[in-house]
Each structure stands twice: as C-alpha cells, then as structure tokens.
Amino acid sequence: MQKELINVKNVYYPPGGILIWIIIFLELFTFGMALIAMIFYSKDEPEIFHNSRLLLNTTFGAVNTVFLLTSGFFMAKSVDSFRENNIKKTALFLRWTLLGGFLFLVLKSVEYYFKIENGYTINYSTFFSFYWMLTLFHVIHVIVGIVILLSVYFGIKKPIVRTSIEDFEASAAFWHMCDLIWLLLFPIIYLLF
C-alpha cells in the first residue's frame, strides 16, 4: 500500500481530493436544480403530482435509503481499515458496501418492473417524467460507483497493493455522493407531494 500523508485541513486537499469534490458539487447542483424544477412544475398540476406520488411505494424508497446508508457506513469503516493497513478488514467491509449497492439496484429494479407493468412510464404524467429521469440518473451513478468499488476491491486483493489512500478516499467519496443524492431524492419524490 502506498502510504501518503495528506493534510485534510488544507483547503486544496479535502478528504478524497479536490477533483472529486468539484464533481460532487456539480452533481449536487444538477440534481438540486432538477428538484427545484420538479417543485416548480408541481405548482401547475398539484392534483396530478399528489395522485402520482401516491402510486409510489414509500416502503421501497425507505428500505432503499436504509440499504444506501448501511452501505455508506461500511464504506466509511473500509476507509478506516485501509488507513490502518488492515487489507483483510478493508476487503470485508468493501464486500458489505457492494452488497448494499447491489441490494439497492435489485429493489429499484423490482420497483421499476411494477411501475412499467402498471403503465406508469415516463409519459404517464409530468410527475413520472421527473421520477424516471431523476431516479434513473441516480441509478446510473450507483452502477458507476459499483464499478469503481469493484476495481478498488480487485486492486487491494492483489499480492502487492498499489492503491493509494487518496484513490481509495476518492472512490469512497463518489460512493457517499450516491447516498447524498438519494437523501435529497427520496423525501422529495416519495414523500413531499
């Protein structure tokens, strides 16, 4: 493992590095603006938004939040273990992190299946246009996050670990960003209208 001393108190070195944080803020702004647009459009069709929201399964949304938060918890533990140079524990926590991500995708797929089967597709209403665009865009981020974590996982499983702590932290920051986005999407799409 390449050990580096990073002073996270330096403005140019937030945990994970400045580049990942620029990406995180860009993503948060993008989703934030889309959510503002969603609330703006709901003003024209409050009844349709309310009735469409009632067609969503809140339990699925809440359970998916639990999956992502639990996955984020294991990711944080994994970063801690990596800092302590405990590769065995790092790999174990990464596997739990990935499991949380996969469970999220499975439940989301089940939710999408029922929506499509009942005809609640992207053209069903303005609410469902936002629902599909925002949640699918988020799912793409989760898939990208899983691919990044898998590459980190196979990197640390090699006999000689070349993964740096900064790379590991950046991957973790991307994964946590998926949590942050979902923490904004879940209450607004599933509960607010």
């Binding site: 996270v8 984020g72 920051a173 942050l180």
Partner: peptide, 19 residues
C-alpha cells in the same frame, strides 16, 4: 433530510476534519 445529509457528509465523508 438536512440532518441526514450532514450526517453522511460530515461523518462518513469526513468533512468534519476538512478545511
């Protein structure tokens, strides 16, 4: 949700230690 957002960003992402 704001509290949850802070929980993830400040603790899991360790922004608490950042500049």
């Amino acid at each position: 949700s704001v509290f949850k957002f802070f929980g993830v960003s400040f603790y899991f992402m360790e922004l608490k230690k950042a500049h």
